[in-house]
Amino acid sequence: MLRQRCSKAPPTLSMTEVPFIVIGGYLGAGKTTLINKILGDNHGLRVGVLINDFGAINIDAKLIQGQEGPLISLANGCVCCRLGNELGSGIETLLNVTPTLDAVLVETSGVAYPAKIASYAKTWPGLAPGGTLVMADANRIQLLAMDKFVGPLIIEQLRQADRVLVTKLDKDNDWPSLQRWINAQAPDVSIMQSDEFASQRLFEISASNHSSVGSANIMFESKTFTTSDSLDLDDIESWLVSLPPEIHRIKGIFYNSGDPKHRWVIQGVGRQRAISTGEAWGKSPKQTEIVVIWPTSLSPKFPDGILEDSTGCHPNGKSP
């Protein structure tokens, strides 16, 4: 049993919509590597991942907390779901996971048109569009674009991205010329190298596309607050209360001076926030790390104080 202190009712399924993030790109572009990273990282987000090819995902057995039907729950709070014949049933399965996930992420097949998959978010009750990330292998993308079978598909995949994530870039690649080439195919997308990409930035994907401004997409931004100092429960509670009302989700762990042996878990949906004790820290570094997520259209003002913003952007500014 968890000891639980609730300032309000614990999080329950609400009408709040979950961002639906699409990871596309041709075979070998690095989709699986990225997903393995998201499933293994300690990013504080509960991401539900719909996986196209289960065999390729390398889940460390130590990280698996439980398995139920098509679902595998992981230590970092993520949940994997095998994608069967129907995308819809996978989405429904993940939307029914409690407590509500922070995001649903789908790995498309290498030959899918990402926009077609992303359009589910505009239809499916419980989902909100969360953006499309298309992966591209720096060494192969230009050759593939000339292939007799997949050339037009490769270009179309790039055009349908909000952000293109270039993988396998090395010293031999001419990065500026590759960027120019991608922008010549797909003028509206933003381009990023894979080593610049951290899981916490998943929520920025949709915000990065110039063409999506003015569309009906709900876009999200996130910010991570951290400190390695221990904190009083009262302080963290008053910090939570002082957060602006625009916050859509909040999720994280904190280092409680009153119980230094255990990590304490914070989760919240809308105005509902709950704090509870979690696992023992064990060997992992004791620290506080809290992710907050809000719709891009709103501009929340964050309180100064006990926690520092580690996202690398100004507290009240847009992400870079």
């Binding site: 075979l27 290498g110 997949v150």
Partner: peptide
């Protein structure tokens, strides 16, 4: 408009 592949050609 483009057609669809149901599997990647190399697969």
């Amino acid at each position: 408009h483009l057609g669809e592949w149901l599997v990647a050609p190399e697969q």
